[in-house]
Design a binder for these strands. Sequence first.
DNA 1: CAAGAATGACTGACCAGTCAGTCATGACGT
DNA 2: ACGTCATGACTGACTGGTCAGTCATTCTTG
Lengths: 216, 216
Amino acid sequence: MSTALSPAEHRKAQRRNEIVRAATRLFADLGYAACEMDRVAGELGIAKGTLYLYFNGKQELFLACVDQGMQDLQTALEQVVVPDNDPFRRIAQSIWRFLQFFDENPQHIELLIQERAIFRDRPQPTFFVYRDARRSRWRDFYQQLMDSGRIRTDLAIDDLLDSIGNLLYGTMFTNYFVGRSVPLCQQYKAVVEFTFRGILSEGERERLTGIACQDW
Amino acid sequence: MSTALSPAEHRKAQRRNEIVRAATRLFADLGYAACEMDRVAGELGIAKGTLYLYFNGKQELFLACVDQGMQDLQTALEQVVVPDNDPFRRIAQSIWRFLQFFDENPQHIELLIQERAIFRDRPQPTFFVYRDARRSRWRDFYQQLMDSGRIRTDLAIDDLLDSIGNLLYGTMFTNYFVGRSVPLCQQYKAVVEFTFRGILSEGERERLTGIACQDW
DNA sequence: CAAGAATGACTGACCAGTCAGTCATGACGT
DNA sequence: ACGTCATGACTGACTGGTCAGTCATTCTTG
């Protein structure tokens, strides 16, 4: 992003941003259908027609809001820095950032739901576009951990990544839909412990093998 | 459910069911908004007005579809029977049934999304109503496993149940949104292994303690 | 021939998107 | 300094299409 913008362009971009911010709140509060363009305009104290100078239509405005949200998430995840580069700290802290982000920005969850419910024909929900962009770096990262024998090698890396990702994805939605019953930090600890060690006791780990058969 | 229904009532109930079945498919295929009452009627070869003899409105019809889906899930989960009552088999098989059900009935996932996106003011999404109804039995079940030292006791039962539930919930949605890249049975095995043992290697388990701190 | 079931044309509310018109600003000429 | 004009950002009344729900009428059945 260069700053080589004329003052006019700059103002325009800024205004566009204000619109996105206001629209995000209203879309999340009211849902896509019930959030009329008139209302977005009213909220900003401008006329409806003006919105169409910045966006080609309601759908484009909405998708701009979703995208902004996922960019904010991306930014939050990139702020993860671990002092001595401890890989497990890096995992734990990324989990923390993810849960914290959506705890603080529930409106973005609502937009993800609305997006999927209403624009059903889109090739891929925005969340997964961004998720996939992060994927290859995580894959390399886990590969190193496997090579150095620090995580188990009897499961495919992609299956591991999927499980962790799905656990977080599900946690985010559930928190939003029915609320957390415990403080975020406790939930975070539970998620990390579950991810690292699973549910079995130490004694049972040795006894139990190959439970996942399918003789039913 | 008694069978003490007059033939007329019976016919009525049956017809109602046919409507729900057809509407489920159309709601899932088209989304709530784009699925007009006219179309549901047309699909069944009846007039729109007839639908209003069976349901008070579009919303009621839709919610009946969602509820039917969750009842079907409930039925599928109740079919879990384990020969020698092995608790871990019971867990594994329930996971299997859950994943399999939504793999075979993706339309019900779509309805869950639509429900949450459009009826935002409902007290609780239908999925969680049914989930909560199953909860206490699972809590007792896990309590026994803890008491007998077969699962770890350093995490709260509800946190464990939440993690497992969220993992499955997230997996279901992700499968539906972007598809599985591996066969269902492989995914199932990965989920079960992850749930039981987590990601750490055996060597690392001993070394690593208390990673989930929050000094950031 | 009731009585209830089914019909489908009709209504009224709703709202995204349009576009003819207004207005603030600033540039230019006198 | 002042009037004139050009620009384009902004406005908001209006249109056209959509669709849930209604109800007077027709059909079916016991």
